[in-house]
Design a protein around this nucleic acid. Structure first.
Length: 249
DNA sequence: TTGTGTTTTATTGCCTCC
DNA sequence: GGAGGCAATAAAACACAA
């Protein structure tokens, strides 16, 4: 058996060298300059003479931490996920570990926590997006419905004009115009022949403008329902903050 | 038993902060 | 410039299906 022999053959990986054979190998940096430093930094085999016992057996394999050690480390991590030097030393002493080992455990634990957190954040964002999308679809449908009503009423007004309806009072036209704008901007304009603000008025121009804006895409629908989107975004903002997520400003 | 995928422990190199 | 953090990665340990 060639235990303890330093070699670097085809089994070398990257910048590593191996001591020992088969399953029991000790890996360290290939660089000779760094060897001594690396031996000092080793956690399980922190010094070269720790590698082998008196019987010249193979070095101890990398071992997992005991459940007791993990429990204490987890509790400590729960309290504070950053490790100040004093706490590191205390934990190492208490658990019979190298301080470096404790530091590495915290580092890896932070990495695991970050991964889980990203997964959670992704899930929350996905559900927020779905909820917003469904609200948007519903608003879009309402908008389509209103557009259809506008078209229908426009046609009725045109027909009435052709039939020779008398011109209305210019003052009443102004009032009706203002009311129409108000109802359109609030998104609540439901107009039918029995409840019309414009018994004799000519609002084809106004209606054409509204209709063309919607059709040519110069308005994405949000300007008509800005309050709804603001509410949805506000809700999302609140939810995001509650969940500790990044939220748009 | 063995092959394969996942988790855990550890190293390296780079970056930032004091 | 040294200490400490993080991302990327290696490899042992472990889990599990075939």
């Amino acid at each position: 058996m060639d235990s303890g022999r330093l070699f670097c053959d085809s089994s070398c990986h990257g910048n590593m060298f191996f001591i020992g054979t088969g399953d029991s190998v000790f890996r360290g940096p290939r660089s000779v300059v760094n060897m001594e430093e690396t031996f000092k930094r080793r956690s399980f085999f922190s010094l070269a003479d720790e590698l082998f016992d008196d019987d010249q057996q193979l070095p101890e394999k990398k071992r997992r931490l005991t459940p007791e050690q993990l429990l204490v480390l987890e509790k400590s991590f729960e309290g504070e996920n950053k490790l100040e030097p004093e706490r590191k030393t205390q934990l190492a002493k208490k658990l019979g570990m190298q301080p470096r080992q404790v530091a590495v455990w915290f580092q890896n634990r932070r990495a695991r926590w970050k991964t889980k957190q990203l997964e959670r954040d992704y899930g929350h964002l996905q559900s927020s997006y779905k909820s917003l999308l469904s609200k948007y679809d519903s608003i879009r449908k309402d908008n389509d419905k209103l557009k259809a009503e506008v078209v229908s009423l426009t046609e009725k007004l045109k027909a009435k004009e052709v039939a020779g309806a008398p011109k209305s009072d210019p003052f009443l036209e102004d009032v009706a115009h203002a009311k129409m704008e108000d109802r359109l901007s609030s998104g609540s304009a439901v107009v039918d022949s029995s409840d019309s603000y414009f018994p004799n008025g000519d609002y084809v121009g106004l209606l054409d403008v509204v209709q063309s804006e919607v059709e040519d895409g110069s308005d994405d629908g949000r300007s008509y329902f800005s309050d709804v989107f603001a509410a949805a975004e506000g809700q999302n903002h609140q939810e995001g903050e509650q969940l500790g997520l990044w939220v748009w400003p």
